[in-house]
């Protein structure tokens, strides 16, 4: 068996917009995640990071490419095997309000996966729900309540309990904290870290808050316009970034203390990201890149490992 829990090979997900136009939300992405690791995925809105997350867990069919889970190609499986594999890959969603059915009681929401896989019944099911509620820091009597009675942070905990109910080994967390207040974000992050240790979970953590991603991730991938442009360990990414887009992204993070004001050299990107309906030729970042050369307009740079554990797609390297 390979050392990787998840291998993503040249995955593409294109959406048809009308008769002729196609949006290449995810356009040929490859990476792998080790067991027990947290891989952070950052990028701006529209970079395709959420689409990639949903494609990996099978909510979207891939346009091409393979997703391997524990060495098995997910698209080759059928029926029972597929369902079993699908159980092991779960997802935590961004919007704690929209991700819980307002007409269902919290207990039934959490037990949804238990019911779908017919894991437990009756008293055992009830006990399991209480166990899960307590695991995420809620109370047994919350099972009888409806989602709108809870605060955002509590709702996100319910979403986490729901994903844990089917004993997954891999979880895609799609911007799980971006809708939460600062003081609550840390609660959820700590919970995710504790659960990872306790249950040997592997995470794909999607976010746009770079400081949080750095905190929780072992390695970080940077996406731009449906492509992965850089992937390396968290420390290396922040200390020695290579891709010009990563440079710009890191330099845009606000300082954490007023006395550091002005110490960070800002790389102001000119203009806006190009329209996904009409992407530029070659490297998608070249229209805003301060270091673009002629070659960038001609071909898309290859995805290559420059140093050990440091992947980048840029003609400059």
């Amino acid at each position: 068996m390979s050392e990787y829990v998840l291998e993503v090979q040249e995955v593409k997900k294109h959406f048809k917009m009308g008769a002729r136009k196609t949006v290449k939300s995810v356009d040929g992405i490859s990476f792998a995640i080790r067991k027990g690791e947290t891989l952070g995925l950052v990028g701006e809105s529209g970079s395709g990071k959420s689409t990639l997350g949903r494609t990996i867990v099978g909510l979207y069919e891939t346009t091409s490419g393979n997703v391997l889970f524990n060495g098995e190609n997910t698209s080759n499986l059928n029926g029972k095997e597929k369902k079993e594999l699908s159980r092991q890959m779960q997802m935590i969603f961004q919007d704690p309000t929209a991700s819980l059915n307002p007409r269902m009681k919290v207990g039934d929401i959490i037990a949804e996966g238990i019911d779908a896989y017919k894991l437990l019944r009756g008293k055992e099911r009830k006990e399991r729900v209480i166990e899960l509620l307590e695991k995420v820091g809620l109370h047994a009597d919350h099972a009888k309540r409806f989602p709108h009675e809870f605060s955002g942070g509590q709702r996100q905990r319910i979403g986490i309990a729901r994903a844990l109910a089917v004993n997954p080994s891999f979880i895609v967390a799609d911007e799980p904290i971006s809708a939460l207040d600062v003081s609550i974000q840390a609660q959820v992050i700590n919970l995710l870290e504790d659960l990872q240790k306790e249950q040997e979970l592997t995470y794909l953590f999607i976010a746009h808050d770079l400081a949080m991603v750095k905190h929780i991730s072992d390695r970080i991938g940077v996406m731009y316009m449906g492509k992965l442009v850089e992937l390396t360990t968290s420390e290396t990414l922040f200390q020695d970034p290579l891709h010009p887009y990563t440079h710009a992204l890191l330099s845009a993070i606000p300082v954490t203390e007023p006395k550091l004001r002005g110490t960070r050299e800002r790389i102001m990107l000119s203009g806006d990201p190009p329209s996904p309906l009409n992407p530029p030729t070659g490297c998608p970042f070249r229209t805003r890149c301060p270091n673009a050369i002629e070659k960038c307009g001609e071909e898309m740079p290859k995805w290559k490992e420059i140093k050990e554990e440091h992947w980048v797609a840029c003609h400059l390297f």
Partner: peptide
């Protein structure tokens, strides 16, 4: 399109 429907689908609900 709502996330709770996607969640149900991911959890294997028919």
């Amino acid at each position: 399109q709502q996330e709770f429907v996607l969640a149900a689908e991911k959890l294997g609900t028919s």
